[in-house]
Design a protein around this nucleic acid. Structure first.
Lengths: 222, 222, 222, 222
DNA sequence: CATGAATGAGCCTTCATTCAT
DNA sequence: GATGAATGAAGGCTCATTCAT
């Protein structure tokens, strides 16, 4: 048994996981060196494969990028499904603060994702390569950004309708709410250093939500 | 033959403005095709120069990127100087809403900048090339991000101290305030389409500020 | 799982015919895409086999090409044997026109072959890959070209000796006779389009032979 | 003066001749190793240039092949123009043997070209790469083959009309006439060895023409 | 100073060949 | 025997940079 160990360096991982392993490697390299400068050979090495092998799973480097973004969309969709569930539960609860609770659930869920560098890297990649892959940008905008903003805006609208919030432009308010997350993605993915006192996403988001909700509930004094 | 020399040459600018022209061209190309894929020849053409000539002004493509970012820092510093002036004026005014007014001035100033694509492109470029130029990132973090956040946080702190705002974590609150701007930069620079109904930066920021200020002034109900 | 093994496999031929099937596939691909660009996998598919399997029958792609040419030599040898038979028969016939009859038989036999694209492709392949396989060229020259030309030249010599033809350089005259066939091979294999009014090889050859024989029989007026 | 000799190996040849030098190198390599296996670097070396430089003159390897064929068409057109001149002169001469003289002039002109390996290589290249470049084949067929065959056929037709030749299918007869040349191109370009007793193109063609003319003038006995 | 021809390092992609199953 | 996943050499093309003019 142990004799077969690492024989000729073939067959290291379960073949079924190859595409995913490759995408992980691609993500790492794309983020570290940018799409253009990332070398297929390095990506392959991350997955314990040789250069040529990745072409058994992906047609081109561009294809990898697209698969990467596509793969990152699923979690967003799943998240939104979860939120819908929270929403349903919440709607059957007591009358006050429903929208607030849902928004909190949404943002905390998102905050949870911010901890995973793999998740955070994708939007950064899309941003970095925007100029070269307009269709990718369009896809991401539609499947992630608009989907998420609209979901938040809808909850805010409900809150306004039920009188929980004062009248607001829901689209703008949604952006007010989402902005911090974007800032945090950029911060963590681009500017944060290992030696930084990491800002807790939860704290940040609860603080933000506190300000937002108080503001949204108050009668504007301005 | 030699009579033809120097004809149909385009629009020879004052040599003193050359570096700036080149940087403008570089910015355009860097944003359109990414740093790696941008070609020196195209950058040169934007400035009405030939390939070789840009090397009289910059040592390398990398050098151009760094100069570009360095150049973009000045406006930020200038802005903050302006804010300091506003602050001084405001402090000599009536007692209420001073911090609020300063914050409004700061954000509107920033909102004004968001309209200029040239300004907006720089942070996107830094984000895109973060992996390849750590020192650039560090420079930008220190000279722009931290400077700006700290300025905002300081004003918020003043507002808290004067009782204008309820007790808040000024750093977190500053991020709450700045987030929308980051979101807007990303949106305009990456995802917005020409046919979009453009979101007015002023409206967005005033809406955001309204929520923030109301929230910051209220006694938290949460 | 293991139950599915060996299903939807295509049409398993008798293993004895494999090499020939493979060579047929190789010929098809070599002609369609050139030797270098032909892919083993495609060749294998033509024979209903998988990539690896062809290596059980041939050592390399180069080996396939050589086998292909070797295989094409047999029909030439067979043809010449047939001609020898015709010659024998003819020799026992009446005295006039013997050489002419033999030449006619030879050319018509060859003309028959010109209709088969598989036959015609081989010399084209040899021509195309001449630079890369000098030994192949040498082999083909010796086994096919020289053999055929010499056979024709020999018949012409007989015709001269018997007075049927005027004195001629038999080698040159043989080339005069064979040239049209080469032209026709090139034309059909390279330049002819599907929508062309196909030139009948028989007509062409009989016309050619008519000219040649009249010329060879006449006393030169030039 | 001699100090500048070979300085940094730049500027060896007259730049105006570069494209032609490159094409010569390409022709050499294409013939020696086939289009696919020919390496740009080797082609460049033939012209005393580096790899990248050839891309200043040609867009791609394919482009070189096309330019090569295009370049080879001009001599053919020029030849045919020359023949037209010969034809005009001949027509004003004595009545007998006009068509024969013109055909002799045409074939001898062509025979002269056969001595130049550069000329002979082109059709071989077209034949070798036919499968990969159908448009090139079409171009060559139209601009060279059909043009030449039609020119010959036209002269033969004149000869028939004037009673110089017996009734013949001019298209087939033209092929009878041209075939030897094709054979000779193939022979010289593919099968001939340095140690062969070279067949003189003139002898071959005069012999061929002798047979052809005698045959064409005689009243068919067959 | 300005030019742009020339250079050559760099990398994606293909595919013949191998070999564990 | 048969398979097809894996390997890695090879080469076309791009473009930052240099430098003779």
């Amino acid at each position: 048994m142990s004799l077969k160990r690492d024989h000729n360096r073939r067959w290291r991982r379960a073949p079924e996981k190859r595409p995913d392993d490759i995408l992980d490697g691609a993500l790492t390299e794309f983020r570290a060196r940018g799409f253009t400068r990332a070398r297929i050979e390095d990506i392959a090495r991350h997955a314990g494969l040789s250069k040529g092998t990745v072409y058994l799973y992906f047609d081109s480097k561009e294809d990898m990028l697209k698969a990467l973004v596509r793969r990152s969309v699923k979690p967003v969709a799943d998240s939104l499904k979860n939120i819908a569930r929270v929403m349903t539960i919440s709607l059957s609860g007591p009358d006050d603060g429903k929208a607030a609770d849902i928004l909190r659930a949404m943002l905390l869920l998102a905050a949870g994702r911010l901890a995973d560098p793999k998740t955070v890297s994708i939007p950064l990649l899309v941003i970095a390569e925007a100029g070269n892959f307009p269709d990718l940008v369009e896809f991401y905008r539609h499947e992630v950004i608009e989907t998420a903003i609209n979901a938040v805006a809808k909850v805010i609208s409900c809150g306004i309708d039920s009188g929980e919030f004062r009248p607001l432009d829901a689209q703008l308010a949604a952006r007010s709410l989402m902005g911090v997350m974007v800032l945090q993605i950029i911060w963590n993915g681009v500017f944060a250093r290992p030696d930084d006192v990491a800002i807790s996403p939860e704290k940040l988001i609860l603080s933000h939500l506190g300000l937002f909700l108080d503001g949204a509930r108050s009668q504007s004094e301005d």
